[in-house]
Each structure stands twice: as structure tokens, then as C-alpha cells.
Simulated assay, not measured.
Amino acid sequence: MRMPGRADRTVFGRWFWTVDRPLFILFLILISLGLIAVAAASPAASQRLSGANFKLPELFFLKRQFMWVAIGLPVLIGVSLLPKDLVRRLAVLGTGLGLLLLASLPVIGAEINGAIRWIQFGGFQLQPSEFLKPAFVVTTAWILSLRFDDEQLPVFSLAGSLLAVTAGLLVIQPDYGQTLLIGAVWAGQALLAGLSLAWVAALGVAAIAVLGAGYVFSPHISGRIDRFLTGEGDTYQADRALDALRSGGLFGTGPGGGEAKYSLPEPHTDYIFAVIGEEFGILACIAVAGIFLAMVIRVLSQLIEEEDPFVTLAASGLAAQIALQAFVNMGVATSLLPSKGMTLPFISHGGSSFIALCLTAGMLLALTRRNRFLKASPFGAKLQAAE
């Protein structure tokens, strides 16, 4: 396909010359690495989930991942084409719909492993909280950005109320991990918007209180924390993940050569980082972590000269959401954090999670689009604002 010229005013032409191509390439690299990682994990996951009366093909989950990529990539690119105002409106609408679906889960949701987080239809499962996260981050950014136009507006109260409602609905599921994740992102955005350190400290205390409530009222949560702190009890998941990482060494056993992965719980989702370590080595794990770090650095570098507070708050929040989720997944696989079912962004096999992350990446690319050739002139600034 011929590269569009700089004078090309078609939708694709404007997108090509305004999108942050290094950031776009980083997302494509993560998705490509995900296909390789799922290919390595698929035989173990298929064997583990096969039943007495049925046997899943070895590459069952790889084929499904190709399907999710075929759906997710158009979502990513399509959302990245949107103007910033439309991204904001989409996020506000998505937040409202997401909260409605979360509130409906006790009635229409399906219980899996003691939690009601999914809506089942046909052979698929929809997890509303995954789609709510990016919408919530952008909506919060919009509310907080209003104070830069009028400091008298009670934006922190409004954004805090939205956080409280969202956190309450997530705790009911229960899903303490997602609650702490969105709370951490919200705190970062509020701090950037000018919230005092005293209030940020109060939020930290509230987060500890939420975790404490989970410890007291949820045997599942307390068991995970106790195993992490004492090393006693059922530490099967953490032990198997460490076994996989140790067996891979620096350079790994080679594609398809891993054996420890067959003992891993959820090798294609929650513990795919351990599969990467076993088959491709610790150096590959460091490279994956480095790509997430490069993504964050790229976004922050793009925001240095950004004058729109909404864009700054939204883009930094979305980048933080992806990075924190990756940190939690890698921390669990390496036993640096208590066990928590959270996927590795763009790499783990998944439906709702993967599509929602493509939506997140698309929003991030849309918000960081700019005309790098014309922005120095007044005309260029007007053109950029129009786009």
C-alpha cells in the first residue's frame, strides 16, 4: 500500500501523519509477542482444561487468540481515528453503560470461582469491568480537567463520588484487585490535577481499609494474603510459576520445550509471564517488561508540551492503567505480589480483556495524535485543534 503524502486530507492520511507511530508500533509488538506466548502456552492450557469426555486441540487457544486479534486490531485503529471530543463522549457513555451493567450483575451475571463478574451469552463471556476501566479513566480526566477553567467547580467531589460508586460495585462482585487498580489510577490523576498530598494520603488509608475489609470478610482474599506473607498453606500456584521461571534460566528451553508449564494454573492467562520465562528465558521477560516501560516513557514524553489538561490527565491515566496491570501480573508470576487473577496486557489470551485493552490503546493513540509538521505555526495549531 502506498504511503499517503503529507497533503493527503483523507481520514487515513490525517491519521497516518498525526498518530504517534512509535507508540502504535509498541502496541503491535506487544500483540505479536502475545501470539507467540499464547502459542507456547496453548498446549498446556488445552491439556489442563480437557475433560474425560472431550479433548481440546493443542492450539485451541492460539486459534481463538487470532480471532480476538482480528477483532481487537480494527477496534484499536478505529478508535485511534476519533477526534478527542468524540473519545471523551464515548468514554462518558461507556462509563454510564458500564456502571449499569455492573449494577445488573447480581441479577444477570454468572458466578465463576465464587465471583459474579461475567455476563454469559452463547459461548462467550463478557466482563463489564474490563470495558469500564478505560472509560472511567477518561471520564475522570474530563471531570478533573474542568477545574482548570473554573477552580470553584467541585470536581474532586464529583470525581470522588464516581470512584466511590465504581469501587462499591466492584467490591460487591467481589473484585478487590480491579478496585485497587482504578483507585490508584484515580489518585494519580487527582494528584496531577492539584489534589493535596493530604487527600492522597487519605486515599491510601482508604485503599488499606478496602484491602482490610477483603481480608476480614473474604476467606479467599485472606488465604491469598496469608500464603504470600507466611509461605504456609496452599502455595501451589506461586510454586509452579517459580518452577517455570527457574527451569527457563536466562535463555529458556526453546519454543515448545517447556515442561513446567503443564503444571501451571491458567498458563495462557494469569501465568503467561511464567511460560515466557520458561520457554524464552529471563532475558525475554526483562524485554517484555522493558516494552511496557518504553510505552509509559513514550506517552509521558509526548505529554511534556501538551497544553490541554484533559489530554494530559486522560493519556497519563490510560498509560498508568496498562502499566499497573502489567506490573501486577508480572509481580504475581514472580511471587512479588499475592496471587491475583489479572491478565498481562495484550499478551494473555482473552476476550473481554484483550478487546478492552485494544479500546484503551485506541483511546491513548487518539488523545496523543498531533500534526508534528505544522504545530509550530499558528495555522498548524488551528489545524491540529480542528483534527
Rank of each mutant, 00 (worst) to 15 (best):
L101F: 12
Q125K: 15
A159T: 00
A44K: 09
G380W: 00
S157R: 13
L303N: 09
S377N: 00
V171Y: 07
I208E: 10
A91N: 01
V200E: 00
L245K: 06
I304T: 12
G98L: 09
Y215P: 06
G114V: 05
P4F: 08
Y176K: 14
F156Y: 00
T179P: 03
F66V: 14
A45D: 08
K55L: 14
A241R: 07
I116V: 15
A45S: 14
A91P: 02
L191T: 10
R372C: 07
G96T: 03
M1I: 09
R246H: 14
G51R: 11
P265D: 08
G194F: 00
F131S: 08
D149Q: 15
L192F: 04
P74Y: 04
A244P: 09
T179A: 04
S80L: 06
R9Y: 04
L62R: 08
G212L: 09
S46Q: 10
F292Y: 11
L364N: 05
A164Q: 02
N329G: 04
V299D: 03
V79S: 02
R240E: 13
G51E: 08
A260S: 13
L144P: 00
L283P: 02
L33H: 06
G290Y: 05
L86E: 11
G204W: 04
A314N: 04
L170I: 06
P265E: 07
L146E: 07
A190F: 01
G256D: 01
S104Y: 13
T312A: 12
T360R: 03
D20H: 09
W118I: 10
F379V: 10
A366L: 05
A314R: 02
G256C: 02
P345C: 07
A244M: 11
T360C: 11
V165T: 07
L181E: 01
L318W: 05
P83Y: 03
A366N: 05
S348G: 09
G362Y: 05
T235L: 13
G109L: 08
F121N: 09
L49M: 13
L293V: 14
L211C: 09
Y215D: 06
A39C: 10
R21S: 12
V155I: 00
G254M: 02
I71E: 13
F354M: 14
A167K: 03
R14A: 08
T140Q: 03
V200K: 01
R372A: 14
L367W: 03
F61G: 10
L170T: 04
A198L: 11
Q189Y: 02
N329Q: 06
L132I: 06
L250Y: 04
D308W: 03
G254P: 01
T10Q: 06
Q47H: 14
M67T: 13
R64H: 15
G96C: 05
D175L: 06
L82K: 00
S104K: 12
P219Q: 03
R48S: 15
A91F: 01
A184E: 02
E266M: 10
N53Y: 11
L132W: 04
G183N: 02
G317F: 01
K133H: 06
L153F: 00
F124I: 11
P22G: 09
G94P: 03
L59M: 15
I172R: 15
F16I: 04
S335A: 15
A40Y: 08
R48A: 15
Q47L: 15
T179Q: 03
S247K: 13
I291W: 02
